[in-house]
Amino acid sequence: MAEPKDAGERRAVEPVICYPVTDLPQPDLALYQRAAEGAVVTGEATAQPREAAYLEVPAGSFLRITSVDGAQVGDLNLFNARDLGERFYSGKTRALHGTHVSTGERLWSNFPYLRPMATIVKDTLDWYGIDQYGGSVHDVIGTRCDPYTGRLLQGSDYHHCCHSNLTRALADHLGISVQEAEPHIHDVLNVFMCTGFTRDTGQYFMKASHVRPGDYIEFFAEIDLLAVLSACPGGDCGAEHTSDVAPCYPLHMSVRTPVEGALTGWVPPVRNAYDGTHGR
């Protein structure tokens, strides 16, 4: 179809940010970072290559995810440890903060809770920014590699994709079947993953992760959290994200507890104040 005469004029209309965040409650990042300096490790778990691990993170402590032996991407699910109905909402986090998150930004929970679950206090990859292709690190746009899309596109079953890894780990933690656990698995934060959208077709792309051993991202737990992390079978996701041949490495999770008094004045966020009547 031919372009209308005013096509250029229409394209030139300036965009409007859908959700200006200037009125969002802002975290006291300086307080969190001071508290993190003296925090000590009180819990640990390691997601082995093509597997997942879980860890409970009490409110007021820190969750650190660290690259261990090589470039490795991780898929993270977060739950309210006391109520699995409250979980990380990647879509709203994306709408508020953008396609990728880093230091000072927050991970938000689903409706009807809609409150910050965690705040990023340190990201050793925040230097990367946005590259010439529109790529950046730690995305909230990808879903997670899963066996259903694999069956759809390749016609075969693969059981060590992130969706299945997360399902098994949650089932193990709760002592339930994978069939009971699976409905709780949700869209993830793609930790250390470098992604974006192509300029011409708008397709989701990935690049080899820039994470190196010793790099980490650290979150402050605003509420009691259950973290479930998969070490993606794609390794650094530079070529594919579901593979038995890509080099893969462990990802380490640690809970770090601040010293007593380090968080004086901090109050956990309450559930969203909307009355829930929906006009009736």
Rank of each mutant, 00 (worst) to 15 (best):
H184A: 15
R144V: 04
V13F: 14
A35W: 10
F111L: 03
V16D: 00
V57P: 05
R199Y: 10
G238T: 03
Y133C: 11
Q179T: 10
G279D: 06
R11T: 04
V245I: 13
C237D: 00
R34A: 08
E182R: 15
D6T: 05
N77F: 07
T257N: 02
F79H: 12
P233E: 11
A181S: 13
H97K: 08
D244G: 07
K207F: 11
L189N: 05
R280M: 04
G175I: 13
Q154H: 12
T119G: 05
N77H: 04
S61H: 14
K122R: 13
T198E: 13
T124K: 08
D75W: 05
T242L: 14
A45C: 02
V267F: 00
A246Q: 15
R151F: 10
G134K: 09
T103R: 15
H252G: 04
F219T: 04
V41R: 14
G202R: 13
A39P: 08
V211Q: 07
L84A: 02
G43W: 00
G142D: 15
I120M: 04
G85R: 11
Q154C: 10
M117E: 04
T124G: 03
N110H: 01
F79M: 09
T277Q: 05
H163V: 01
A45F: 02
I120F: 11
G8L: 15
W127V: 06
Q154V: 09
A45T: 04
P250E: 05
W127G: 07
N190H: 06
C232E: 08
I17Q: 12
Y113M: 01
L29P: 00
Y133M: 11
D236T: 07
T93D: 11
H160N: 09
V191K: 10
T242I: 15
H186Y: 06
I130E: 09
V267H: 10
D224F: 11
K122I: 02
E218R: 07
L96T: 11
G235L: 06
H159G: 02
R144S: 06
R256F: 07
P116E: 03
H163R: 10
V140K: 07
Q179L: 05
Y19S: 11
L96S: 01
I141D: 14
Q33N: 09
A45L: 03
A208Y: 06
W108T: 08
H97P: 05
A208N: 08
R271E: 00
V73K: 13
V13W: 14
V40K: 13
I176G: 03
E56T: 14
W108K: 07
G279K: 07
A221H: 09
T201N: 08
G265H: 13
L166F: 14
S230L: 05
V41K: 14
V255I: 07
P116V: 01
A95Y: 03
P58E: 15
H252W: 08
M253R: 10
A262Y: 02
D23G: 05
H210I: 08
I217L: 12
